[in-house]
Write a protein that binds this DNA or RNA. Structure first.
Lengths: 224, 224
DNA sequence: GGCCGCATGTGTACTTTGTACGCTTATCAA
DNA sequence: TTGATAAGCGTACAAAGTACACATGCGGCC
């Protein structure tokens, strides 16, 4: 009774595809996609690098699996909710997923082998819009707009990891430093008066644009 | 008079930072960012890999330089044009730049050392909005919305490089093949009835969303 | 002319990465 | 007991970034 203890949960049940994928996601979350090397994941699992290949076929297959897990994390309100509520909830949830897993932003919509969660997700969103009265062309418009905005928001708000205003100011200093003073007055004003002001809220900025888009779509739907 | 010919243009004037950067951009355009290796760029220039390092300090520095060239490619109508026209032109131009240089989509807004074209560009856009009457908060909303949408559009439209409908159908087949038939009916309908229909236009889809956003901003500006 | 210094290109070599291949070991059915 | 199967591993190699020291040719100065 050394390695295989009884029927109770084994403290280290050995590798599995799921365990590898979960560990890889956690590692990418905290260290980024570049740090997601086979050796590092193996190290976290206290296993030799080549052992991973019993459960995934290669690094790309691993990433495919990671992405499909993320699609499963997106909230999909499918009940009787109004389409606007449903799309708003989905977009906010997607933004949160992308904020938690920044490494995934460029990968979610470019997989050549979409997994089941991926396809199920898109199927559900399209179904919701169709049943709310969107014709096929309007579904395309709406989905394109909402996804572009949401992914793009996550992409462009590289979310500066600064705690204090001082750190931020130092960073801004560094950026402008190689150039003549007042070479970029509008940008300087914007940075000083807006970005660096406390109270700037990531979520509010996202939802401002989201609501503008949803309202526009609602009008378009009425005149469809 | 073998290597250094006369005053006329030398057929191979030797390396320069600009030449390295231009060659790298062309190579990334046609082969993608993964294929952008020092050895490949050196090969295109018929030069030893290490020679590149006389003109760039490392791969990241090279990418910084490449990105700044792209910022210079974005059209900036700064004259007396209405802000809506100016923003529309800029967004379309940015989309075109990103379509030509897809490898750059995730890099444009995350450079730690923005170059002069980058800063000049942002300065000009902000200046245009400010002088059109946007207050600082509205500038943030507008810029965030327009950039998120434009970058996101480029990102999510991974622009399937298919010439024929047949190729497209084969691709769709491959995607659905591992799953039970009719598992994703809404998605299947959407793909069949919309994406695969000829006449689907990349540009029109972008501009639909762009105009919806610009109209929303115009309303918001009026009630600012 | 003869010399020197600098800028530019290069060869070699080391590190980090993905992963092919074949060996070892543990488990379990017959 | 035996042999099959799955799981983990050690070794090794190719591709990539790049440090370092050397080569080479051009310019200016005496």
């Amino acid at each position: 009774m050394s390695t295989t203890a009884g029927k109770h949960e084994d403290p280290r049940p050995g590798l599995s595809r799921q365990l590898v994928v979960q560990t890889a996601i956690q590692h990418a979350d905290s260290a980024g996609l570049d740090a997601l090397t086979m050796r590092q994941v193996a190290g976290l699992l206290q296993v030799a690098p080549m052992s991973l290949y019993r459960h995934i076929s290669n690094r790309d297959d691993l990433i495919d699996a990671m992405i499909d897990v993320l699609f499963g994390e997106i909230a999909l309100p499918l009940g009787s909710a109004h389409w606007k509520t449903a799309m708003r909830t989905r977009a906010v949830s997607l933004r949160n997923v992308l904020a938690r897993h920044r490494w995934a932003i460029g990968l979610m919509e470019s997989r050549r082998r979409p997994g089941p969660s991926n396809l199920r997700h898109h199927d559900a969103v399209i179904g919701k819009l169709r049943s709310a009265g969107f014709d096929i062309g309007m579904v395309a418009h709406a989905y394109s707009l909402l996804d572009a905005y949401t992914y793009g928001y996550a992409l462009t708000k590289v979310n500066i990891p600064f705690e204090t205003t001082d750190e931020m100011a130092a960073m801004a200093q560094d950026m402008f430093e190689p150039f003549p003073a007042n070479e970029y007055p509008n940008l300087a004003e914007f940075v000083t008066d807006h970005v660096m002001k406390p109270g700037y809220d990531y979520g509010e900025e996202f939802e401002y644009g989201l609501d503008l888009i949803l309202n526009g779509l609602e009008e378009a739907l009425a005149g469809q």
